[in-house]
Computed example of a mutant assay.
Amino acid sequence: MCDDCGMSPMYDKEPSPLVVVVDDEPSVIRSLTGFLERAGLRTATAGSCSTALQLIRSKRPDLILMDVGLPDGSGLDLCRLLQTEGTTSRTPILFISAHDDPSIKVRGFEAGGLDFITKPIVGVEVIARVRTHLRLRQAYDRLSELHAERLHNLASAQQTLMPALKDDHPTRFFASIRQALTAGGDFYDVIPTGPEVVDYLVADASGHDLAASLWTASLKALTAEFATPLNTPGDIVHALNSSLHHFMPSGAFFTLTYARLNHRTRRLSLVSAGQPPAIVIHATEEKPLILRVEGDVLGAFPDAVFGNIETTLQPSDRLWLYTDGLIENGCTHDLGLSRLISACISRKDMPLAMAVPSVVDDLIGDRSANDDLLLLGVDV
């Protein structure tokens, strides 16, 4: 006991690694568990494939020592099965075999095993191999944690670049974004450029790796410089293209929709750089307005040409801007666009903050996105 505080100096420690030993020979089980426990490791044992599978699923060990031949099946087959399960796919498996046959070793490595221990068992060798693979597993886990932390920090920084809905904002918009990775290349911005005049930008960097996410900061900075009432949307997109072309690497580019909406006159000017068509859902008409505008991608060509369209919208219309990942996730472009239009129409009376995520859920559901995707809705 501690004389000053009256409390025990003991503290909680992480439990020692758990090793599951799978073998049908009691003498081998006794030898292995003895070696492991004297080395400070915890053990659990099984004598068959079926028992081992239940034990491994419930205990989630840090490492598995597995005999190749078991009474009710092959350790190789059990290893293959464990490789397919999320909770065990990364658990190191070391095979135990009475045969030093190279073909068995090759099959073991092909099944997902990381090492082989040949009988008769030598305690020093077993402990050395087990410790090596436990250290490798711990190092891998730590790297994964650091990678996840960096991704989280990058995603947080990227989110600060994109605006949030504010009560005093002159417009009403709502966006939903999903990344194939934690951070990605899809991006939107909302920029007031005059009394009741707002510019809406939706962009998609080529690729959906971490490099793509870094380009969005450059696009954000450039747009803030060029988006002024003195520049038309066409001027802004051409200026963005000229700047991006000078420093983006070969093969990298953005697709982009840039829309300026005067919420008082409801006049819309829209420029496209390789993006799918914007959609306008009318409050009083069943047929939607599909704004198909052709244009080159942004940043790839010094002399790129961008399509432009101008139109006047109606009171209570709703404008939808999005990236292609939303409509090309598991289906063709045309089918995805048709599904998106139907989803937007069916939610035209729904508040925007509810409609946007509902449309995304309708199209994507619980499926993992294989590309970044973004949907931005704007109430006229």
Rank of each mutant, 00 (worst) to 15 (best):
187 F>V: 00
160 T>E: 13
330 G>V: 02
74 S>A: 07
3 D>R: 09
2 C>R: 15
41 L>R: 00
3 D>N: 00
251 G>C: 04
36 L>N: 11
3 D>Y: 08
259 A>T: 07
275 Q>S: 13
351 P>W: 06
144 S>N: 03
370 N>G: 02
94 L>R: 09
51 T>R: 06
65 L>F: 03
96 I>D: 00
291 L>P: 03
215 W>Y: 15
14 E>Y: 07
76 L>P: 05
309 I>S: 02
113 G>S: 07
161 L>E: 01
10 M>Q: 12
175 A>V: 13
145 E>Y: 06
247 F>P: 07
246 H>Y: 14
366 D>L: 11
53 L>H: 15
326 L>N: 08
269 S>V: 12
343 A>P: 09
114 L>R: 08
370 N>P: 15
161 L>S: 12
368 S>P: 05
194 G>S: 03
251 G>H: 04
373 L>K: 00
242 S>H: 12
252 A>L: 04
199 D>T: 15
24 D>S: 03
167 D>P: 05
138 Q>W: 09
154 L>D: 12
134 L>Y: 07
168 D>L: 03
205 A>T: 04
209 D>N: 15
13 K>C: 11
152 H>Q: 09
288 P>V: 04
103 S>E: 12
301 F>C: 09
120 P>K: 03
103 S>T: 10
233 P>H: 04
241 N>W: 10
287 K>I: 08
335 L>S: 06
296 D>E: 13
331 C>F: 08
270 L>K: 09
92 P>Y: 12
7 M>Q: 11
254 F>R: 05
118 T>M: 05
162 M>Q: 14
310 E>F: 03
24 D>W: 13
300 A>S: 06
94 L>F: 06
100 D>H: 08
328 E>C: 04
255 T>W: 02
196 E>A: 07
147 H>T: 09
233 P>T: 06
132 T>N: 03
26 P>E: 02
27 S>G: 08
153 N>F: 14
319 L>K: 06
82 L>K: 01
52 A>Y: 13
123 G>K: 10
220 K>S: 09
132 T>F: 05
293 V>T: 05
274 G>K: 09
148 A>F: 15
77 D>S: 14
166 K>F: 04
324 D>Q: 12
228 T>R: 11
155 A>R: 15
82 L>A: 13
211 A>I: 14
101 D>M: 12
153 N>I: 08
169 H>D: 13
12 D>G: 10
131 R>L: 05
35 F>V: 11
125 E>Q: 11
336 G>C: 01
52 A>E: 04
104 I>W: 08
313 L>S: 02
167 D>S: 14
62 D>G: 12
348 K>T: 03
376 L>K: 07
358 S>G: 08
378 V>A: 08
29 I>Y: 02
177 I>K: 00
111 A>G: 01
78 L>Y: 07
262 N>H: 07
32 L>M: 06
57 R>C: 01
194 G>I: 10
